[in-house]
Simulated scan of single mutants.
Amino acid sequence: MLQALLYRTGKARPLFYRVEISRNLFEEASVTREWGAVGGTPRTITSCHTDLRAASRAADTHRQRALDRGYIRDASHLHLARTTPG
C-alpha cells in the first residue's frame, strides 16, 4: 500500500487530501481518494484499475492536482501530531 497525505491551511479549518494505491480482492489495483476537514467526516472515492501502472498514473494525477490547488506535504506547522509530555 502506497499513500500520499497532503494538507492545506488558510481556511477556517485545515483540510487534508489522501491518495492511496492498494490491491483489491480481484487482484486489481485500487486508488482511494479521501478528503475533507481535519477532524471532520471525510469524503471517499475508490476507483479500480487493471494494473499497478494505470493505478499509479491515476494516483499521481490526483496528487498533482491537489498540490496545484495549494495542498502541501508537510503538516508540521499544523500541530496535528500528539506530543508526549516529557
Rank of each mutant, 00 (worst) to 15 (best):
F16R: 04
L2I: 01
R63Q: 10
T44I: 14
D68R: 11
A12Q: 07
H62D: 11
R63A: 01
L6C: 03
P14M: 11
A58R: 01
L15Q: 14
A12Y: 08
T50D: 07
T84Q: 08
Q64P: 01
T50W: 04
V31E: 07
C48E: 11
H49P: 00
A55P: 06
Q64F: 03
T44C: 04
A75Q: 12
G86K: 06
E27G: 04
R69S: 14
R13V: 08
R57Q: 13
R53Q: 12
T61M: 04
E27F: 12
R23T: 08
L52R: 12
E28T: 08
L2F: 09
A55R: 05
R23M: 05
G10R: 02
I21N: 04
R63F: 04
D74M: 01
F16A: 07
L52W: 15
G86H: 12
P42V: 03
E27D: 13
T83W: 04
H62W: 15
V31Q: 12
N24K: 06
H77L: 05
G70M: 09
L6R: 11
K11V: 01
T41C: 07
L78R: 05
T32C: 03
F16M: 05
F26T: 00
E20W: 03
D60I: 02
P85L: 14
Q64W: 10
Y17N: 06
T41M: 12
D74K: 00
S30H: 04
L25T: 03
W35K: 02
A66K: 08
D60Q: 15
H77Q: 10
D60V: 01
R43G: 01
A59Q: 01
N24V: 00
F26W: 12
R13W: 14
L15N: 05
T50F: 06
E34C: 10
C48Y: 14
W35P: 04
D68T: 05
Y71S: 06
Y71R: 06
V19Y: 05
R18S: 06
T41V: 13
R13D: 11
G10A: 12
G36H: 07
T61R: 09
R13L: 11
Y17S: 09
R63N: 11
M1K: 05
T46M: 09
G70I: 09
G70W: 13
Y71P: 02
V31A: 07
L15I: 02
R82V: 06
L2D: 07
S30Q: 14
S22T: 07
R69D: 14
R57F: 08
L15S: 07
L78S: 02
R53G: 00
A29R: 03
A29N: 06
D68N: 15
L5N: 13
L25D: 07
G39M: 09
S76M: 07
D74Q: 05
V38S: 01
A37K: 15
L5P: 03
E20K: 08
G10I: 11
A55N: 06
S47P: 00
A37P: 00
D60G: 12
K11E: 15
E28K: 14
L80E: 03
G10E: 13
H49E: 05
E20C: 05
R23N: 05
R18K: 15
R43C: 09
R73P: 10
R57I: 04
R65M: 10
R53E: 10
A66T: 10
A54L: 13
A75Y: 11
G10P: 14
E34S: 15
A55S: 09
A12E: 14
